[in-house]
Simulated assay, not measured.
Amino acid sequence: MATIDLNLLSALDVLLAERSVTAAAKRLGLSPSATSRTLARLRSATGDPLLVQAGRSLVPTPYAERLAGRVHALAQEAQAVLTPVARQIDPQSLKRMFTIRANEGFVALFAPALVTGIIEAAPGVRLRFAPKPDKEATLLRDGTVDLEIGTAGASAPEVLSQLVFRDSFIGAVRLHHPMLAEPMTPRLYAACCHVVASRRGVWKGPVDYALGELGLQREVVAIVPSFLDALNIARRSDLIALVPRSCIGSNNVEAQGLQGFDLPMPTPELAISAMWHPRLDADPGHRWLRQKFVSICRGAT
């Protein structure tokens, strides 16, 4: 391939279409003498005269006639491959399946608005929500997942991300929980029994470290895989669930039989991001999905 000049392909396509060195030179933006030299190079490369004189015009050889259709298709394809990707697309004409990896709490809260908003804008788009049992970036790297939602990790430094929204932890208890009758303090919070959500079964987190600085320790009596599981247990017991504010912040929590409350000690914010592999960064369809996705999520929080 080092000896192949793709400019020759485009030149041959124009020469076969025009059957005139002068006319081809105008289309190619070259002088007639330069175009004649290009024709000579093409004859040398193919081993065929390609175009021969017939009176005042040029006519293709049988080989050139057989080649014309293939040359035109190849020239068009090469031009398409080597043309910069269009930055704007028409969502109405976009037909594509996107796989989004997120935990079930995010899906429960945001999927209805995402499906409605994205499909209204792009009727040919299909969304597939995949579970997120871990933070491994393998599925982003191999193309199985198009977009991942969560807190950015350090396992895949090449993965790109965009902040979707900021979140924070709150407590959630059943309605009429005895704890609600008193002002919330770190000591009162620590004295209750707790249910936490952890995919990896981890007992301690930022809340425990904040309590530890005050010389306090809470009693975690149950660990469940998801925040929705934690809320379900809190609804039916006296346990306190620790969940992101987004899990219940925009819903009618009283209708769910729950009451949310601010934690009585500061804890770090959660940065919820959309993550994707660099191979998709310039893809116009994926770019549109990211922009629409972030816009809908921010509007729902």
Score class of each variant (00 low, 15 high):
R126G: 05
A86D: 01
V81E: 06
F110K: 10
L74V: 05
A75M: 09
Q76Y: 07
E120T: 08
F106W: 11
V115W: 00
I100E: 03
V81S: 09
I118G: 08
A86E: 02
E77W: 08
A108V: 12
I89K: 12
A113P: 00
A78T: 13
D90V: 14
V85K: 09
T116G: 01
A121C: 02
A75H: 09
A121M: 00
V125D: 02
P91V: 14
P112T: 05
V71S: 06
G105I: 02
G117R: 05
G124S: 10
Q88N: 06
I89P: 11
F129Q: 10
Q76F: 08
Q88V: 13
L74S: 06
T99F: 09
P123Y: 00
A122T: 05
F129T: 13
L114I: 15
E120G: 02
Q79C: 10
E120P: 01
F98H: 08
A80T: 15
V115R: 04
L114P: 11
N103Q: 05
L82C: 10
A73N: 01
A102M: 14
Q88E: 04
F98G: 08
M97Q: 08
A122V: 06
Q92I: 10
Q79H: 14
A102F: 07
R70I: 12
P112K: 04
N103K: 05
E104W: 03
V107D: 13
G117E: 00
A121T: 07
V107M: 15
A122R: 03
Q79Y: 09
I89L: 15
P84D: 01
S93E: 12
Q79W: 08
P84F: 01
A73K: 09
S93I: 08
R128E: 06
R126Q: 09
G124F: 04
A102Q: 11
V125K: 04
I100L: 13
T99I: 14
L74T: 05
I119L: 08
K95H: 14
H72R: 15
R87E: 05
R126L: 07
V85R: 12
L82D: 06
A121D: 01
Q79G: 12
A122N: 02
V125R: 02
Q76N: 12
R70C: 06
A102T: 13
V107S: 15
V71N: 05
L82K: 10
F110R: 12
G117Q: 01
I119V: 11
I118K: 09
G117F: 00
L94Y: 10
R126T: 12
A113T: 02
A73P: 00
R128C: 09
R70A: 15
L74G: 10
